[in-house]
Design a protein around this nucleic acid. Structure first.
Lengths: 341, 341
DNA sequence: ATGCTCTGCTAAATCAGTTTAGCGGCCACT
DNA sequence: AGTGGCCGCTAAACTGATTTAGCAGAGCAT
C-alpha cells in the first residue's frame, strides 16, 4: 500500500532547499522569512512529485492523527446507526479527519480491546455512541482526551448529543390535537423499565413527558395506556388488539416507536379498520418502514445524521458544555385525520 | 489522548537493558540470544509500566499499521451495511486490526478524498464495498496494495466476496416445489436493467437464473412475471394488485426481495386474501421486516456478517483467487403452505 | 573597525519504535 | 599462542515528518 511515495526530503532536494524550508512552506507557516521564490519552488516540487505527507511520521512528532475514534456499544451495525455514522463521516471529512470505528457489543472485554486499540493509534478524540438513548458510564481510559457522547449522557457531565425527545413528544401530541382528537387518544408503549431507568432509556421518559405536558396544557387526558415489555411489532400488535377489545374505541393512537406502530397497523388491518378514517396513528423514530406503510405513518424523525455531525463538531470545534439537543422533525403523513363522526 | 504513556525506552531502562533487547523480547523474536532472565525483566517492566507500543512510531518503521480501510459507495450507512461492518469488525479484531471507514456516496471527489486519506494513513489493505451486488471499476490508486471487493466484482479479477444468489434462487424455487406448488407460481420483480447491466446488479440475474433452473428441472414454468422499475414496497404492491386482477390467481409468489414482498402483503391484505392459505410468499434478503410481517415471511438471508468476515480473512490471510461465494440460508417461515384445494 | 539587527535559510534534535551491525568475553581447537 | 565461533547484549542507523536553535551575509549605526 502506497509504496514509492515521495518524501519531504525528496521535495526539498528537488526544490534545492532544506527539509525545514519545505516543511515550513507546505504547512503555510507564518512569520517564516522564506522568499517568494522558495515558496514557488517547494510548491512546484511537491506538485511534480505528487507529494503527500506520511501521516504516521507527522503524528509521531505532533501527536495529532486527524483520526477520530467512533466507539459504540452496538450502534454501528444496526439500521439506526447509518445516519449517525454518515453525519459523523461528513463532518469529519469537512475537517480533514477520518473515523476509526469499533463496536463493543456491550462486552467489557471487547470494550477494553477497542479502547486500547484506539489509544494505541493515538486518536485525537473519541465519540462514544449508544444504540438506545441512555445514560452510561464512560470507561475511564478514554477520559485522557476529548470525548463526546452520542445518543447518551453520563454522570461526568461530558459533552453529549441527544435527540430532543421531550419536544418530539409535545409535537406528536400537538399534531393529534390539531386534528381535533381530544378524548379518545390512546398510548401504546408504556414501559416502566425504560421510563424509570436512565441506563436503559432516556427516550421513553422524555417522550412520555412531552406528550403528557402537551395534553395537560390542552386539558386532555389519555383514554388508555398500554404497557409493552419491548417496543417491537408484536407488542404493538398485541396492544392494539387489547385496545380494540375495549368498549370504547380510541380515535387516535400514539405509539412510542414505529415498530410498535407497525404492529398496531397489522392489528387494525386484521380487524378491518382503516387508518386514518377509523383511527389515526402517530409515532416516533421515522424508521424507513414508516414511509412504506399504507397509509404512510406520521412520525417524528430521529435526526441521526445531524446528531453524528454535531458530535464531530463538538469534539473538534468545541461548544457549550450543556447537552446538545437535536430537534426531531415531525413527518406529517397520511395516518392522520380528524376523528370520525 | 494518551499522554504520559510509557515508552519502550522506559521499559528498557527499568529492565536494565537496551531498547533493542526490550524490543526483541516484546516482539517475541526467535533466534535472539537474550537470557531467560532478561525476558523476565522486560516482561515485568512492561507490565509494571502498563507499556503499550506507539503504533504510529512502529508503523513508521515497519510500514504496517494494523489498519484496514473499509471504503464503500454508500453501504456503510444503510441498514444493509450493518452486518457487513460487524463481520469485518469481528474478523479484524481477531487479527488485531482495526477498521478505518469511509463512504464515497458515489461521488468521485469524495472517493478521491477517501482514498487519499486512507493511503496517507498507510492502511495495510482496502476493502471496497458496494451497497448493491454489482460489478464496478476500482480506482487505480488503491491497486498498489491488497484489495478485496465486498459485494462486488470487477474486471481486474480482484479477490471478491459475493452472496450466492444463484443458489438462493434455486432454493427459493425448491421450497415452493417442496410445498407442492407447480403451475401457479408467479414472480414479482423482473427488471431488465438490473438483470442485464452487471454494473447495476448481479443479484437480479443470478436469482432469476437460479429460480428458472430449478423450475426447469422440475418441468414447471411460471404462471406470470411482473416487471418492477424498482424493488420497493410500492412496486410490490402494484405488482400484486396486477396479479390479483388476472383471471387465474397464483398459488404462490416469489418476490425478488423482501421490500417487494412487503408491498405484496399489503395488496393481499387489502384484497382480503390470506398468506399462506390463499397464497404462499417467498423472497430474498431477510430484511428485519421479514420476521416482523404477519405471517412471518420465508426468505433467503443475505449473509452480511459472513461476507464482511470473509472479506477481512481474504485480505489478511489470503485465499483462492476465484470469487468467494457465501451461501444465503433459507429462512423457512409461516408464509409457506401447500396450495389451497 | 566593531557591534547590532535583520534576512533567508539550514543542521540537528526529536518523536518512539525496529533493525543492522558489531562488541567484548569466554571457550575450544589447532 | 593464535584464532575462530558462540553467547548475550548494545550502539547507532533508520523510518518521515516537525521544530528548535543558530549560521552566514548584508546593511547600518557607532
Amino acid at each position: 500500500m502506497g509504496r514509492n511515495r515521495a518524501t519531504l526530503a525528496d521535495v526539498a532536494r528537488r526544490a534545492g532547499l532544506s527539509k525545514t524550508a519545505a516543511s515550513m512552506v507546505l504547512n503555510g507557516r507564518e512569520g517564516t522569512r522564506l522568499s517568494a521564490e522558495a515558496h514557488q519552488r517547494v510548491f512546484a516540487a511537491a506538485e511534480e512529485l505528487g507529494y503527500r505527507p506520511n501521516l504516521a511520521a507527522r503524528s509521531l512528532r505532533t501527536r495529532k492523527t486527524a483520526t477520530i475514534a467512533f466507539v459504540s456499544d452496538i450502534v454501528a451495525t444496526t439500521r439506526f446507526a447509518g445516519g449517525l455514522i454518515r453525519g459523523a463521516l461528513d463532518a469529519a471529512r469537512e475537517r480533514d479527519h477520518v473515523l476509526l470505528i469499533t463496536e463493543t457489543q456491550g462486552d467489557a472485554t471487547f470494550e477494553q480491546y477497542a479502547i486500547e486499540a484506539m489509544l494505541d493509534r493515538q486518536v485525537d478524540g473519541v465519540i462514544y455512541a449508544a444504540m438506545a438513548t441512555r445514560r452510561l458510564t464512560v470507561p475511564p481510559a478514554i477520559l485522557g482526551g476529548p470525548v463526546v457522547l452520542l445518543n447518551a449522557t453520563s454522570a461526568d457531565g461530558l459533552p453529549c448529543v441527544l435527540p430532543d425527545d421531550d419536544r418530539a413528544g409535545r409535537s406528536v401530541a400537538a399534531a393529534l390535537l390539531e386534528h381535533g382528537h381530544r378524548d379518545a387518544i390512546a398510548l401504546i408503549g408504556r414501559n416502566r423499565l425504560k421510563e424509570d431507568d436512565p441506563e436503559v432509556s432516556l427516550a421513553a421518559r422524555a417522550r412520555l413527558g412531552g406528550i403528557q405536558q402537551a395534553l395537560d396544557e390542552a386539558g386532555v387526558s389519555l383514554l388508555a395506556e398500554c404497557f409493552c415489555t419491548e417496543w417491537l411489532p408484536e407488542h404493538g400488535y398485541a396492544a392494539m388488539r387489547g385496545l380494540l377489545s375495549r368498549p370504547s374505541r380510541p380515535s387516535a393512537v400514539i405509539c412510542m416507536n414505529d415498530r410498535l406502530a407497525f404492529g398496531a397497523y397489522q392489528a387494525l388491518g386484521e380487524a378491518g379498520l382503516s387508518v386514518p378514517d377509523d383511527i389515526s396513528v402517530i409515532s416516533f423514530d421515522d424508521d424507513p418502514i414508516a414511509a412504506w406503510l399504507r397509509p404512510s405513518l406520521a412520525t417524528t424523525a430521529l435526526p441521526h445524521e445531524q446528531m453524528g455531525r454535531r458530535a464531530v463538531e463538538l469534539l473538534l470545534d468545541g461548544g457549550p458544555a450543556e447537552p446538545s439537543l437535536v430537534a426531531m422533525p415531525l413527518r406529517r403523513r397520511r395516518s392522520l385525520a380528524p376523528p370520525a363522526g
